[in-house]
Design a protein around this nucleic acid. Sequence first.
DNA 1: GCTTAATAGGTAACCTATTTCCATTAACTA
DNA 2: TAGTTAATGGAAATAGGTTACCTATTAAGC
Lengths: 372, 372
Amino acid sequence: MPSQSDVAKLANVSFMTVSRVINGKGNVKEDTRIKVLKAIEELGYYPNAAARALNNNKTDGIGIIIPYAEFMTAAPYFLDLITSLEKNIDEMGYHLIFKFPSSIKSAADYSNLYMERKVDGLIVLAPSVDQWLLKRLTKDNVPSVVVYGRDDELDINYVDADNYNGIKKIVNYLLSLGHTHIGMLTGSTTLICGRDRISGYVDALKENKMQLDRQLIYYGNWEPESGIKAFNYFFNLKTPPTAIIASNDHMALGVMKEAERNGLKIPRDLSITGYNDILYSQYLTPSLTTMRQPLEKIGKLAVKLLIEAIENPDKPKEHIMMDTEFIIRESCAAPRKELNLKLKPLDPLEQPNLRVGIVYPHPEFGKSNKNI
Amino acid sequence: MPSQSDVAKLANVSFMTVSRVINGKGNVKEDTRIKVLKAIEELGYYPNAAARALNNNKTDGIGIIIPYAEFMTAAPYFLDLITSLEKNIDEMGYHLIFKFPSSIKSAADYSNLYMERKVDGLIVLAPSVDQWLLKRLTKDNVPSVVVYGRDDELDINYVDADNYNGIKKIVNYLLSLGHTHIGMLTGSTTLICGRDRISGYVDALKENKMQLDRQLIYYGNWEPESGIKAFNYFFNLKTPPTAIIASNDHMALGVMKEAERNGLKIPRDLSITGYNDILYSQYLTPSLTTMRQPLEKIGKLAVKLLIEAIENPDKPKEHIMMDTEFIIRESCAAPRKELNLKLKPLDPLEQPNLRVGIVYPHPEFGKSNKNI
DNA sequence: GCTTAATAGGTAACCTATTTCCATTAACTA
DNA sequence: TAGTTAATGGAAATAGGTTACCTATTAAGC
């Protein structure tokens, strides 16, 4: 492969001139510039990224870390987020390096991307509540941005979607339709967004002076299968809910499927809402009422924050909370007064994963310094 | 950040010894080794990837290039493929660099990843039929593997799924149910897999001595919206099909939605098949009959081939064609004899994108030297 | 105890580009 | 004509490692 000095030789200039042409620094006569460019073209020369990185202590790489596999498998919508991230990263002249959760060998593995200087900064998607990764990044002073997560204790950039108020909107909507028995099908509580959605549910009921019935919370794992289990759990209760809030569209789909299998008609016999507005949600029958997140904007902001952090490590950290958009479709209606559904009782081995009595931490939005 | 010589100083050895410890080459006394490791630990030392790359002319990076945006948006199943790729790449001690189609600035942009020596090799997902990228990679001798595409003219590694025979299986299945009017809803014909599926349809009919009716082919674009348009097109024909083969699950979903909106009951009034077996397909009502591809295996093989190509550039290229798995669910039945459906005629502005008369190239499987 | 070989560790050159600090020449300005 | 600016070249240092080569120590064999 040709090097800078090969180009210099061919163009009959010193390698300094070649460097000047490539980096656009210093003065170069137009004639010379063209001569050099021609030589570059002729040799098919590309500057060696490693050599540059070594010198400048800058790789132009940005790492994306996804700590939890569940976030990926349960969320194709996450592809849109990555697409947005990549697009913005590329536009800023950076490239994208991926680390998936399947590949964790040890805690160390993560930030290695940065420590080995393969990237200039990190974007962390949906970290877990224990925040060990964020703590570590903060401690090591790694330029980073958290997306789909937050921690107001740590001095760290984040761009989160307002899951808490999103679920509140949904609860209020269902209450306005006349529902008084609203089931909550949660996602994993390992993820902050999972917990926020539960908090939103709990607080919305409280604000409306409704009694919280912990039996109406079923703890799922984001997968459609959870929806199937949740349906069977809820309809084995003495008073099943007339509406079910699923913490994502996948689980809502599972509920719909199982409801239809049992002869229920949605929304006549049961109202269902999802979360995320995955592509297929609008094509379901009935189409799914759900919450859309501004993925495009989130990606753009995250990249902007990160690059600012890379270029200016002393820049104060920003906390951004994005509003969500409620998409009302066909899957909700007023509650049906009576419903005589005979379900076979739950297999005792298949008892749902109930964690009645756990108190979830409440988000404190007051600490956010920005709200878009 | 600490460097090798910082470690050397602290451990009271020369930097060469540190290098030996890190790379496990050469002889180092156990005492010394421990001393060095302790120093590494204490300083939090990580070898600088750029410096290593510069020396070894090896980055341990693998680039993934997705030339066409449509392949991504229309295919969440592709996330599973990427997951598999990343997992295998990581297990082999490499890392993953992404280039998405949205970020194309010029043809050059692509192979730059390799030319700038940011990666040691490339995986190309679903290239277009014109094969310009593959030609270029071959010409420049870039270690690479094509996934979801092929070209038996070019001397290049590929791992493809057998779309041609996959669709044949589906056609034969529908014929066996008694269908004689089978509609084909294609994906984009820019992608090889799109064309292969059409060829499979055409040839399967021919092999069964059925007349090919070009009116029964509707050219879609992989999106659910295509399914909606296709339904309206097909049911404006004098004799609508009794079964529709969609080239992917997304479009099948669109057909189902529109069929139900028009009061058809699936599969009673219309049989539908998809392709890819996306997660949600099993949760639709009715669940979707579709074709599953061994994404896990494809990812594993692709990475294996690529790393072999990187380590041994003279290794003969391999052509691998993977079998697909037919998943029969509820969306197909015997054809209904009579169906009186009154559709409003197509908006003249919404005429389907018909390309009657185009002859598609037929795949030549004889040239593949492997079939798994 | 001496030879031979294996082991342990050090030195210098090199990988490719950048930066700094000058030195030189040509061209232009006051 | 002196002084300034632009346009290049040159040398040396640097970035953080690796490789090849070389020396010194230790262990094994007789």
